[in-house]
């Protein structure tokens, strides 16, 4: 213990400036938001009480959570297979895949969102082609609804799901799988009982990353939802900029923050979160 303290002490001095910056520029504004949520328009928990009074707020929160859960499920599942394929193919193909993945990762969310409209809109490429070859009589409503929002969000989130998984899979010792088959396990058994458990930290990391990022989605639901899919980020923005109900906005932001923290806390009950974020599993 004594050695530890001796070891840590000078380190604190070095990170002190950073710590001060973080507190001033990050914690300060967050506290300000929390403060706003209990003081605007009047002191008290009136903003939080609205959650009990207003079905609409609960519906917006439920829409948000529902869309985020579905997005996370699909992005992580698809991401897992992509990462798996990348790890197990030749280096050359892996480089191609990584390039494609990063290119889509770097393209702006607006461009990607509007591209979906061009592809899957009422008069988009897919609908027009299907109509021309006579497969459908009426255009399929891919876009401007919740389905459209999900397509856009899952597509956007897949790179975020792949990258942590890729890291986790690459770090695996392949000899473990060899040992498993050497001991008579089938391919499926090796996957379910060895590979999947060993990649769980990566799986949890990408699930958390995708879910938390999805909570803040703004552009995609606003454009692809046709105005009918209202998620919490857009609602907060309207409360800040248009209706000037900053207390409601702060309350919802605080709720999101505590929701995410609670989620991390629950996860930490079941596993060491440090392994998820790249620490050693000890």
């Amino acid at each position: 213990m004594h050695a530890l303290r001796k070891h840590i002490h000078p380190g604190w001095l070095i990170i002190a400036p950073l710590l001060v910056l973080v507190v001033a520029l990050y914690l300060g504004p967050i506290l300000n938001i929390l403060w706003l949520s209990v003081t605007d328009p009047e002191p008290g928990f009136g903003n939080y009480a609205k959650l009990g009074e207003s079905d609409a707020l609960l519906r917006i929160l439920w829409t948000t959570v529902r869309i985020c859960i579905i997005t996370t499920m699909f992005s992580v599942t698809l991401g897992y297979s992509i990462a798996y394929a990348m790890v197990h193919c030749h280096q050359r193909q892996k480089n191609y895949m990584l390039t494609l993945l990063l290119v889509s990762f770097w393209i702006s969310i607006l461009v990607r969102t509007f591209s979906w409209l061009m592809l899957l809109g009422r008069k988009g490429l897919v609908n027009v082609t299907l109509e021309d070859i006579g497969l459908i009589a009426e255009p399929i409503a891919f876009m401007r609804n919740e389905f459209g929002v999900l397509i856009g969000m899952i597509h956007y989130m897949i790179p975020y799901a792949v990258l942590p998984l890729l890291v986790s899979m690459q770090a695996l010792d392949k000899r473990v799988m060899d040992a498993s088959s050497n001991l008579g396990a089938t391919g499926a058994q090796t996957f379910w009982r060895i590979y999947l458990p060993l990649t769980t930290p990566g799986l949890v990391a990408s699930t958390l990353l995708v879910f938390i990022l999805s909570l803040g989605f703004y552009v995609t639901p606003a454009v692809l939802g046709g105005g009918k899919v209202l998620m919490v980020a857009e609602y907060i923005s309207v409360q800040l900029l248009v209706t000037l109900k900053w207390g409601t906005a702060a309350m919802l932001a605080a709720l999101m923050l505590f929701g995410v923290l609670a989620m991390l806390w629950i996860m930490s009950r079941f596993m060491k979160l440090s392994t998820v974020f790249g620490g050693a599993a000890r």
Partner: peptide, 14 residues
Amino acid sequence: NGGDAVNAFLEAIS
């Protein structure tokens, strides 16, 4: 009344 009207409208269409 604009603030309340906008919220009521958003709630009705979403």
